[in-house]
Nucleic acid binder design. Structure first.
Length: 648
RNA sequence: GCCGCCAUAGCUCAGUCGGUAGAGCGGCUGAUUUGUAAUCAGCAGGUCGGGAGUUCGAUCCUCCCUGGCGGCUCCA
């Protein structure tokens, strides 16, 4: 059986005249038909199907069911279409198959079924949707003709450009990998893993105890139902002069103003420091790679991402979507023994590139160009992999705490790995300390056997992965990475993939969305102190105090390393306070005659009551808030009066 | 990538039933020297996102493009 699926906005057909002498006569209502929001299934019954007709029909319905589950069409049209095969079954057999399909479809598919008549020349009009699943073809065979691998096989990738739709896109080569299509067929089961390592099917879990967790589960499995608005972080990122769109670039490529760039840099430095302390060896690898490199070609087929393509002379390169490949190439050439493992390579990839579909891009949540701290850890065996995984899991937990953003944890398992490693599952459940969403795959479709993610929920109940750690069982061998074990034999290591923070830009998205949630509840938005672009602002009450304020600012700066500025504009104090609050400055000092005369400093504290502090007490307070986090200068004029505005 | 909506001053937006435009904020100048969320006045800012079409005439109507948002799809 050959199948062609079209997810259609609209289909109408009309039988014109019989194509076969055996064609059954048609009632007028059978001759014409139309359907909106339909999954149109064109089918050709083939000679090889005849011995196993019921089985082939059953498998066909399974395929239709599978595709229907993914595209969520409202009805199915069964459309006999002989032109899909060179090797057709005899018409009477094909007709029989059609009857069987029609008979079995309603119960199996649970949506209205429309059937086009068999054995007639038909005129039809079709408007196909353009999403990647809208057009698929499949081939289904029975036992007799299947040989060693019976069942369903995927024949080709979704095609671009359909009858009646726009002309084919200028698709760069390999835009859609085999892994992408593969992923679309993936079926999984969902559970909750309790801190006591009990695995509860989601259908039996009481999500009412934890609404955030329930919202996360619903989002992961069903997507959001809420009427969406522009995500609030977009307004905030612009109002706070952090990040903005850049219309002169491609979609999903942003400009970063000084304050935003500072936050980004601090996140990067903190991440790199965390990883350095954890033993990561920092490297740098190229951002573009040769499509034709043999190792790479195979790898691309396993990685579900769309790439930017760069044409140079007569060669095509793609821009990296992660640091994996570059680090594998380094690992490949390294000389390692058992004692050298775990071996960790780390790169802060600014940038990684993924040509996400335009409709998927949304503010800082999903970009086409992003900064991804990427660490790969070679380990000798599963014992080491599990130990290292748990260590990195804890690094992720600490990262999220530093960010101050709540999250939900998800972990994905291949069934075999889950069953064979109860110790690991238990340790992970305990380390997480809260219920954790589990996706269980019966078979391994990807390169990893397990993978964890931390997902903050945004204002609209959408989840986005930040931290992630994975155990890769495939690429050590694929890339010929080897170490010499203590028995003198050369072996392929397992590889852990980790991004402790996830994409840096997405961290800012998570912070801003979380603050927007707070603001909606009437609380003040704020950055963690270490990420505040301006940490302390000094407000002179009037002109004569500008000089002493500048002096105080530079003293705070030299004593604490904090970023301090002075609002020396010709404005009233009320206005200066208002502006400082609107910029989320955590500590605001008003400085006038009293302070100049030696009185204690009046400190307006964003997240608490005002303080009255001496200068040394202030230094201590600032130092306490800063902790051991990275410091960096603001990189803007200290005096607000001399500071340009990047966005009105 | 598909469907829908949107694009007017640096920003947020109003407006023109088709006759080339306004406000607030911000900026500049001047006055003001201020004690915990907006000091006052004056001035300067616009090919009404880009291209094509219809029209005597298009910011307004139509089509295409670009960018944004929402939904779908997607999301190691």
């Amino acid at each position: 059986m050959k199948l062609l699926f079209i997810h259609a906005d609209r289909l109408s057909f009309e039988a014109r005249k019989p194509a076969l002498r055996s064609a059954p006569p048609l009632a007028p209502e059978e001759a014409k038909g139309e359907a909106n929001e339909a999954l149109v299934v064109f089918y050709s019954v083939e000679a090889g199907d005849v011995p196993d007709l019921p089985l082939v029909v059953d498998r066909t319905l399974a395929e239709v069911e599978n595709v229907l589950g993914q595209v969520k069409a409202e009805r199915v049209v069964l459309y006999p279409y002989a032109h899909l095969s060179q090797n057709l079954a005899p018409p009477n057999e094909a007709q029989k198959a059609g009857e069987l399909l029609k008979a079995g479809a309603p119960a199996r598919l649970k949506v209205p079924i429309v059937s086009a008549p068999f054995g007639y020349y038909k005129a039809f009009e079709l408007k196909a949707k353009g999403h990647p699943l809208a057009e698929l073809s499949r081939s289904v065979v029975g036992v007799a003709s299947a040989g060693a691998a019976p069942g369903v096989s995927l024949v080709n990738k979704p095609s671009k450009g359909a009858p009646g739709s726009a002309p084919p896109a200028k698709a760069p080569p390999m835009q859609e990998s085999e892994a992408l299509t593969r992923e679309k067929k993936l079926v999984s089961q969902w559970f909750v893993l309790t801190p006591e390592a009990k695995l509860v099917p989601v259908t039996e879990y009481d999500f009412t105890k934890d609404p955030e967790f329930g919202a996360f589960y619903r989002y992961e499995t069903q997507g959001t139902r809420q009427a969406g608005e522009e995500p609030p972080h977009v307004r905030l990122m612009r109002e706070l002069e952090l990040v903005d769109y850049e219309p002169a670039s491609d979609a999903g490529n942003f400009r970063w103003y000084p304050k935003g760039q500072l936050i980004k840099r601090l996140l990067q430095e903190q991440c790199s420091e965390v990883i350095r302390r954890a033993g990561g060896m920092r490297v740098e690898t190229p951002i573009m790679y040769d499509y034709e490199h043999p190792a790479l070609k195979r790898y691309l087929d396993r990685f579900p991402a769309r790439q930017y393509v760069l044409r140079s002379e007569d060669k095509d390169y793609f821009l990296r979507f992660a640091a994996c490949f570059g680090q594998y190439m380094i690992f490949h050439d390294m000389v390692m023994g058992r004692k050298d493992l775990p071996a960790r390579l780390y790169e802060l990839t600014h940038y990684s590139f993924r040509r996400e579909q335009t409709g998927e891009l949304s503010g800082l949540r999903r970009l086409r160009t992003f900064t991804m701290p990427d660490m790969h850890t070679l380990v000798a065996d599963y014992a080491q992999a599990k130990h290292e995984f748990l260590e990195q899991f804890q690094l992720c937990q600490r990262w999220m705490a530093d960010l101050g953003v709540p999250y939900n944890a998800a972990v994905r398992f291949v069934r075999g790995f889950y069953d064979e490693n109860p110790d690991f599952v238990q340790a992970l459940a305990k380390a997480n300390g809260r219920p954790m969403l589990v996706e269980m795959w019966e078979d391994r479709f990807f390169y990893f056997v397990t993978k964890m993610e931390f997902h903050p929920l945004d204002t609209q109940g959408r989840a986005a992965a930040l931290s992630t750690v994975q155990i890769d069982v495939e690429n050590g061998e694929r890339f010929g990475i080897q170490y010499t074990d203590s028995d003198g034999k050369r072996k392929h290591p397992l590889i852990l993939h980790a991004s402790i923070p996830g994409a840096i830009e997405r961290n800012l998205y998570a912070i801003l969305e979380n603050e927007a949630k707070k603001m909606a509840k009437g609380q003040k938005g704020a950055f963690p102190f270490w990420l505040s672009p301006v940490q302390v602002r000094v407000l002179p009450v009037s002109d004569p105090f500008v000089e002493p304020c500048l002096k105080l600012a530079s003293e705070i700066e030299s004593r604490t390393g904090a970023r301090v500025d002075v609002d020396d504009r010709d404005e009233g104090i009320g206005r200066k306070i208002r502006d400082a609050e609107r910029e989320w400055v955590p500590l605001i000092l008003v400085y006038g005659e009293k302070e100049a005369g030696g009185a204690k400093l009046q400190v307006r504290v964003r997240d608490g009551p005002a303080l009255s502090l001496s200068a040394p007490e202030l230094f201590e307070e600032v130092g306490r808030r800063q902790g051991d986090k990275p410091r960096a200068p603001l990189g803007l004029p200290t005096r607000l009066n001399l500071r340009p505005i990047f966005r009105g």
